[in-house]
Design a protein around this nucleic acid. Structure first.
Length: 371
RNA sequence: GGAGGGGUGGCAGAGUGGUCAAAUGCAACGGGCUGUAAACCCGUCGACGUUACGUCUACGUAGGUUCGAAUCCUACCCCCUCCA
């Protein structure tokens, strides 16, 4: 069971501040959900996620199904018990792997045959199978199995793909059994075509799932296309349901999307970039391996209250990264996730205060991006 | 004292007459990463000219052979191994 309540609306935009209630805890929105594909937010112990008030993390159906396999997770009574995380979990359906592993799979009306990237074995994922796996995982929010459309695609291709995803969403809904303990979100597709996207929203509204996700963005399209489409879709999404923009994004992407009515985000960026030495600060990105930091005894971000910034110098963080020390990945990830967590808290405060536009402007200056 | 092996770009290490400003790895420097096949990937890396490209200086030192030398010859300097 999941309920969504909007507490405040930004007077100057479609931004909303609210709360999602699940049986495993509250989720203040707008929220950023760290990605923990294989049952771990890479390099970060759960304790740190809890300390920085991470309300919910992601898991991935495809990856967990391949390894460790549903048998093991079922024996533990679900993913929460297996990984020892008792806050909410959202699992992606495997739809993103239809995109990211597109050279290793064959798609037909019934579903997708994947050739495992681990051992070459073949596995068939259908809407029903994805839901069945997600029921075994026991995640609080489960996602419809969709085809994440690549970019670029022609309009007919985008339409076919969207209609397929909508038929699959219907099948997901029909096979969704644990309606009391798990909540199913539908996923809007339609490539970069606004009319297809609107059509997709309408079809999902007919199925009437409790949450509305937008998929198929940040797949290589030019920077501003997504903002423009969100702009058009903002007023079109069902107001009373949470809006989840999948796989997005940069700090600027997130604020820009909140302004256009998005409530939920996930992205590998803070964790992957952390492991690759790119750190987010309130003054913009820092590439910690750059020579300029080699003697710098100041903290990564003096405005950041995270355990890393309160204790370690830039010079030390650089040394750890350059040396390939394991601790580097952990400290960098903790910092970046803390930054994202603080970013979302600020976004919520600014919605309450009606100052989200000003906040957005400030962030743009730090990240020197153009809208 | 005798016998043998070797000195190549920051390091390791290929190359043994022209296609060599010199493979490859590491280091260094810069960049990328958006529902995670990512502790990954890409670029630069002798100097000078913005770049295509050109010029110059370079494979221990000094000479030589050759149209042409990191590669062949001579001398010298240094290092390593084995034997006494």
């Amino acid at each position: 069971m999941l309920s969504f309540r909007i507490l405040h609306k930004d007077p100057n935009s479609l931004g909303r501040e609210g709360v999602i209630t699940t049986s495993r805890g509250l989720i203040k929105t707008p929220v950023f959900m760290p990605v923990g594909t294989a049952g771990t937010v890479k390099a970060v112990p759960h304790e740190f996620l809890e300390e920085m008030n991470t309300p919910i993390i992601l898991g991935n159906t495809y990856h967990l199904y391949l390894r460790p396999g549903t048998g093991i997770i079922e024996k533990f009574g679900g993913l929460h018990n297996f990984i020892s995380w008792n806050r909410p979990i959202l699992t992606d359906s495997g739809g993103f792997q239809v995109f990211s592993h597109r050279k290793l799979r064959k798609l037909n009306e019934n579903g997708v045959e994947f050739k495992s990237h681990l051992d070459g074995s073949t596995h068939f994922l259908s809407p029903e199978k994805s839901i069945e796996i997600q029921e075994i995982l026991g995640s609080d929010i489960i996602m419809a199995f969709d085809e994440c459309t690549p970019y670029p695609v022609s309009k007919p291709e985008a339409e076919d793909s969207m209609l397929l995803s909508m038929r699959w969403a219907q099948r997901c809904s029909e096979s969704w059994k644990n309606r009391n303990s798990q909540t199913l979100f539908g996923i809007v597709q339609g490539g970069m075509f606004v009319d297809l996207r609107k059509q997709s929203i309408e079809k999902l509204e007919e199925i009437d799932l409790p949450g509305m996700a937008l998929g198929g963005f940040s797949v290589g399209e030019p920077k501003n296309i997504m903002y423009e489409i969100l702009e058009e879709l903002g007023g079109y999404l069902p107001v009373e349901k949470p809006h989840y923009l999948m796989g997005v994004g940069t700090p600027v992407d997130i604020v820009q999307s909140v302004l256009r009515g998005i409530d939920m985000f996930d992205c590998v960026l803070p964790t992957r970039n952390a492991r690759n030495g790119m750190l987010f600060t309130w003054n913009g990105p820092v590439r910690i391996k750059n020579a300029i930091h080699s003697m710098d005894d100041s903290p990564l971000d003096p405005k950041c209250g995270c355990p890393v910034c309160s204790r370690y110098s830039r010079a030390y963080l650089r040394h750890l990264f350059i040396s390939g020390e394991i601790l580097s990945y952990t400290l960098n990830s903790i910092h970046n996730l803390h930054f994202y967590s603080a970013l979302m808290a600020k976004i919520r405060e600014n919605i309450k205060a009606g100052t989200l536009n000003r906040f957005s402007q400030k962030l743009l200056e730090s990240y020197q991006e153009e809208i």
